[in-house]
Simulated scan of single mutants.
Amino acid sequence: MSKNWWKILGAVLVIYTTVAGLLLGVPHLNILNETIRNLYFHVPMWFAMIVLFSISVFYSIKSLSSKSEIDDLRAVESINVGIVFGVLGLVTGAVWAKFTWGQYWSFDPKQNFAAISILLYFAYLVLRNAIDEEQKRAKISAIYNIFAFPMMVVLLFVLPRLQSSLHPGNGGNPGFNSYDLDSRMRAVFYPACLGWIIIGYWIYTIRFRIRSIENKQL
């Protein structure tokens, strides 16, 4: 039990933020109205994705020097889970956009660059499947991942700020500030981010263990 405290914490935080996110009061803002509750789900998906991709690039760098199959496996499994959270971020963002901007996909710069950043990592998986030789696959995919990560950061946090955008915090459009994100929302939003990051990491560890067992049986 003492070793699993963080798993319990993650589960409790996600349950708490899901219930509180749907039931507790929120600021009544024009256009957003009750849809602002999606902040508790949409943004944490991206934070979890970025943490998982950070783990993957760490192990990709490590695998180049260690040439360890374990490090390579950790890198690819963290990307597999990170992509799931990235897709969830796109879906929750599209639903939010439908109720605030009028359509699921308005080709806003933030939406476009977010989609491209996810495609970068789908390309990583395609690249791995295209190479049969194990050592070569690990090396080339690790190098690709090392370059993909900073490109993802630029696509998500730099380029959208250089263009006009409907998305909060980009293109001169103000982000959520102390007026929008009051104390009630902070009490749910911050735990939600931490909770989903922990759950994402938990899923990654499960996938890694399963793949490790499968590889030993081959």
Results as ranks from 00 to 15, higher is better:
residue 100 T to N: 08
residue 48 A to S: 15
residue 62 K to E: 09
residue 132 D to M: 09
residue 218 L to P: 05
residue 72 D to Y: 15
residue 7 K to A: 11
residue 19 V to L: 04
residue 154 V to I: 15
residue 157 F to P: 05
residue 1 M to S: 11
residue 90 L to W: 08
residue 91 V to F: 08
residue 120 L to F: 09
residue 129 N to M: 09
residue 181 L to V: 02
residue 143 I to A: 08
residue 120 L to D: 07
residue 87 V to S: 04
residue 42 H to Y: 00
residue 86 G to W: 04
residue 21 G to R: 02
residue 196 W to G: 01
residue 195 G to W: 03
residue 38 N to F: 15
residue 188 V to C: 01
residue 10 G to P: 00
residue 151 M to W: 10
residue 159 L to A: 09
residue 81 V to E: 03
residue 20 A to S: 09
residue 95 V to F: 12
residue 65 S to Y: 13
residue 64 L to V: 04
residue 156 L to W: 00
residue 212 S to T: 11
residue 32 L to G: 01
residue 176 F to G: 09
residue 78 S to D: 00
residue 206 I to R: 13
residue 109 P to K: 00
residue 148 A to D: 06
residue 147 F to H: 06
residue 59 Y to A: 01
residue 178 S to I: 07
residue 71 D to Y: 08
residue 53 F to H: 05
residue 112 N to F: 10
residue 108 D to S: 03
residue 57 V to R: 08
residue 87 V to L: 06
residue 80 N to I: 08
residue 127 L to H: 05
residue 1 M to T: 09
residue 214 E to K: 15
residue 179 Y to K: 10
residue 15 I to N: 00
residue 204 Y to M: 12
residue 55 I to R: 01
residue 71 D to S: 05
residue 210 I to F: 11
residue 4 N to S: 14
residue 17 T to P: 00
residue 173 N to M: 11
residue 112 N to I: 11
residue 216 K to C: 07
residue 20 A to N: 01
residue 196 W to F: 13
residue 63 S to E: 00
residue 209 R to W: 12
residue 49 M to Y: 09
residue 54 S to F: 13
residue 178 S to T: 11
residue 152 M to Y: 13
residue 26 V to H: 14
residue 9 L to I: 11
residue 94 A to E: 04
residue 2 S to N: 09
residue 213 I to S: 10
residue 121 Y to R: 00
residue 147 F to Y: 13
residue 30 N to G: 12
residue 162 L to R: 15
residue 97 A to Y: 02
residue 166 L to V: 08
residue 190 Y to H: 00
residue 12 V to N: 03
residue 218 L to R: 12
residue 41 F to S: 07
residue 132 D to L: 11
residue 56 S to E: 06
residue 94 A to F: 07
residue 154 V to S: 12
residue 99 F to W: 13
residue 209 R to S: 13
residue 100 T to E: 02
residue 51 V to S: 07
residue 192 A to E: 01
residue 89 G to V: 06
residue 132 D to N: 12
residue 8 I to S: 09
residue 134 E to A: 13
residue 69 E to F: 11
residue 53 F to L: 10
residue 182 D to K: 12
residue 150 P to C: 07
residue 163 Q to G: 07
residue 92 T to K: 02
residue 161 R to K: 15
residue 111 Q to H: 10
